[in-house]
Design a binder for these strands. Structure first.
Lengths: 208, 208
DNA sequence: TCCAAACATACGAACGATCGTTCGTTCGCG
DNA sequence: CGCGAACGAACGATCGTTCGTATGTTTGGA
């Protein structure tokens, strides 16, 4: 009854966008309740249609998860490639990587939440691919730290460990930070960069 | 047939421990597959009994989650209270807090995984209590940073933000770090403390 | 010391609910 | 006329949980 009226007046024009709309609702639900705890009927309900109609747009529940996870993963990886190719000092490339990672992070916090927490529900062929992309991205950050150590601008340490920790920190910050405008986001990037570079000790207290 | 023989020979002694054993299996499953994606029948299967028998030990599926989550939460909060009462310089209390948090973290990584990721599936009366305990613990770390800033040993910043970020970082490290022995664990604590205090920049590169 | 009542723990059967998904159909737009 | 997109009905599977029951152990009164 409700689903009849809408498609009657706007069938073709928003028909392509209905798919994207559903994907958005799915993102919100997967993020808030988790993939396994979200039912197709509930997704249909918030989308304003009945459950079987979802299958006109997505061939399965996991297809939705797949699109969300790989959409974010591709965005992260391609950004990393762009920054890696820049002709900048390594610490500036780190600052850029932090900045761009945060920008992506806050451009769609719900999708990021799914990307970070729900990927394990992907099934096997996709799961391996996803892990591989993730590993690539970690290696990009590890590479920045390694290069910085070789050039003496960073102190010695485990580059991969540092890369993973930095990613962990930024990804998690999505939960505990209010939505920033573009200025607050740049400020957040500087905070992360400063915290990571110099720590919390006051300048007068820097030992070693 | 299999469940008959075991209780026949060892009925009273491990009868109390069967409960703990099931809780352990539940922890492992909730951690690996997620609470919503774990069925009572599967838990029963790995426990070596049938699903209805679980209800002789736990009154519901959520009771299992409740025990795991609040068991960890209580451990964290009581540790925080112990450290807060110590008569030590604030930066040493921070180091101790990091060390003890890591010790708890790695004392039962699976329980910690459930504690960190699955608490949202608690239902309402417990959910509020859990969030409250969590907030107490965050405030403990925030308090350390705030005190350190007042005494000039830490540079200025948002104490609550810093506390949450530090917790985020340590909690997440459970996934990306191999199981440490007690020495490696102490070393990990020093790594966190140093990273947090002084950052990654090499000493010759410390500006500000 | 012995027997019976009480208890703890396991089981198979089964309940109603809900799950993801398929099917056949209808209906309006191009 | 065909096609995309919606629907109701319904499929088999699985969900958390309850029930009645069997069996072994513990316990307490005669």
């Amino acid at each position: 009854m409700k689903g009849d009226l809408l498609p009657a007046t706007q069938a073709t024009a928003p028909t392509g966008s209905r798919r994207a709309l559903i994907a958005g609702f799915a993102t919100e639900l997967f993020h808030r309740k988790g993939y396994a705890a979200t039912s197709m009927r509930e997704l249909a309900s918030v989308s304003g249609i009945e459950a079987p109609s979802l299958y006109n747009h997505f061939s399965s529940k996991e297809t939705l998860l797949h699109e969300i996870c790989f959409g974010m993963a591709d965005a992260f990886v391609s950004t990393a490639q762009r920054i890696a190719a820049m002709d900048l000092p390594v610490e500036d490339r780190l600052a850029r990587a932090i900045e761009e990672h945060l920008r992506l992070l806050f451009s769609d916090r719900e999708a990021v939440g799914v990307f970070v927490n729900e990927w394990r529900h992907l099934s096997e062929p996709s799961l391996q691919t996803f892990k591989s992309l993730r590993s690539d991205y970690e290696q990009f950050f590890a590479g920045l730290f390694q290069e910085g150590m070789q050039k003496g601008v960073f102190r010695q340490g485990d580059p991969l460990w540092l890369g993973r920790q930095l990613l962990l920190l930024m990804n998690g910050s999505v939960h505990s930070t209010a939505r920033p405008d573009s200025e607050a986001l740049a400020d957040l990037g500087r905070r992360f960069y400063s915290l990571w570079m110099h720590g919390v000790a006051s300048p007068t207290n820097q030992p070693d």
